[in-house]
Write a protein that binds this DNA or RNA. Structure first.
Lengths: 255, 255
DNA sequence: TTCTGTCCCTTGTCCGACAAAGTTAGAGCT
DNA sequence: AGCTCTAACTTTGTCGGACAAGGGACAGAA
């Protein structure tokens, strides 16, 4: 007969983890504000009373989590995690889980429609100006698939931003990052792709300007259906997302 | 006149970052499969030709990203990033960006409705069994707010799972993690909260069983509106999400 | 067979060291 | 005085070596 449990397991986290947790707590609690400097490694060695190697391992954890960064002079300071950086982790996870383009398409349909609804309802003049600027740049590069795909990605980020809902902004980002590389392929492969894409963007901006929700939803759906039709000329929707994402994700990390 | 560019900028990432990138590439490319052992630190020292401290810093980066784990005996192996773990990073970011409950509510309305639609359309018998099991456990703890809140969180994870859309599963998770702590408060504060919550769950399961999309959407909306009404008795929707998340997030990390 | 002691290996941590790059302070010049 | 340029000083990234704690394997004892 097994012994009755008498003791609870003790929490024995390694020291580097405790260091990371302690600093994280201070940041999330707000005692260290984004932008505030964390001391030098030597300072932290003194404060925590552990070796510099241990401190450095803890710092790596926080750095990867986006909670602290090193500025140009490599000094440490707290910072607000960037959605894009975090989303690239998620995109990577989606690739590893071998999600299909069908899942990506379906989820994006939901998320992008929600974004445009928010944008139509709450988009500001400033949002419209950014979108118009993006549109102008898109029109200028309509013949260059790579540039156009980049503009398209930015356009939808701006739509999400115009929704004024940061949760939505964050939620759509992982799927969007996986879309991005395919857009270039599609615009390259389908002759009508570029102009249709730009036209859809124009209609979306109009919808926001006139606060015309129906039009916004309609054109978002069409825009995505265009993507889908274009994609199906190249591959099956049930293929899983693959390596194509890699180059883009790693390049984005460097920035 | 400036010289014509003759050389490309050299990649001057620190060694620990290169180590992390190299291992990440192998995992994402699929040459290292989830579950495969990475060598010991000493192996990696030999392979990369750098110091063990450097290897260890690289490992911390990958560990935080969820790409590798240490098993019970602390040996390294590749693994599939868990959505929950990644989502907790995102939740933390949302807290730091001081998103409001209104944003959380609006985004969740979209995401949960999409989840139930998928679940109604594609939910399997196994999904239903898991949901039914969850419902039974919920009914048993209807008087215990903490346990009930936990069941509620799990219920909605199961709904998302039943949608068979992993992108959606992932996208809803960050917002859901921030909801969780408030559910307990609400069920505690509102007498009718517990029974109403369980009733809604029952209706949702029925909707999936009968593939009744209208009912699924209807009860999801009601369920969320209940949350909202309950929350507004406690605080304003425009308050930003705060520390309340911390205890839960850190506890989840340990698992 | 099951328990226990021992050995080897791995990890977590520490110490000390050094080159490169950035920072600061002061000397020197206008 | 104000500016520039150089020389210390700091800080980071990396290295080598070291050691204790703890898991796994294996042999021997009950």
């Amino acid at each position: 007969m097994p012994l009755a449990p008498l003791f609870r397991p003790i929490d024995v986290a390694p020291a580097y983890q405790k260091v990371a947790d302690a600093i994280e707590r201070e940041i999330v609690n707000g005692r260290i504000k984004p932008g505030d400097p964390i001391g030098t490694e030597h300072d932290l060695v003194r404060q925590f009373g552990v070796n510099r190697s241990t401190i450095r391992e803890g710092i790596r954890v926080l750095e990867e989590g986006g909670l602290i960064r090193r500025d140009s002079s490599r000094r440490l300071h707290a910072c607000l995690p960037r959605y894009r950086q975090l989303a690239s982790r998620l995109s990577r996870a989606l690739v590893l889980h071998e999600v299909t383009f069908r899942e990506l398409y379906e989820a994006s349909m939901t998320l992008e429609v929600a974004s445009i609804e928010g944008a139509v309802e709450r988009g500001t003049g400033e949002n419209l100006a950014e979108l118009a600027d993006n549109l102008a740049r898109s029109e200028a590069v309509v013949g260059d698939p790579a540039m156009l795909a980049e503009c398209d990605a930015e356009f939808h980020v701006l739509i999400a931003k115009a929704s004024q809902n940061r949760v939505l902004q964050l939620a759509r980002e992982p799927a969007a990052q996986l879309f991005y590389p395919t857009t270039e392929m599609i615009v390259t492969g389908v002759a009508e792709g570029g102009p249709r894409l730009v036209a859809a963007h124009r209609h979306l901006i109009d919808a926001i300007r006139h606060r015309d929700r129906e039009a916004g939803v309609l054109w978002t759906r069409r825009h995505l259906q265009d993507w889908r039709r274009g994609f199906e000329k190249i591959a099956s929707l049930d293929r899983s997302v693959e390596h194509m994402y890699m180059e883009h994700a790693q390049a984005a990390r460097r920035r």
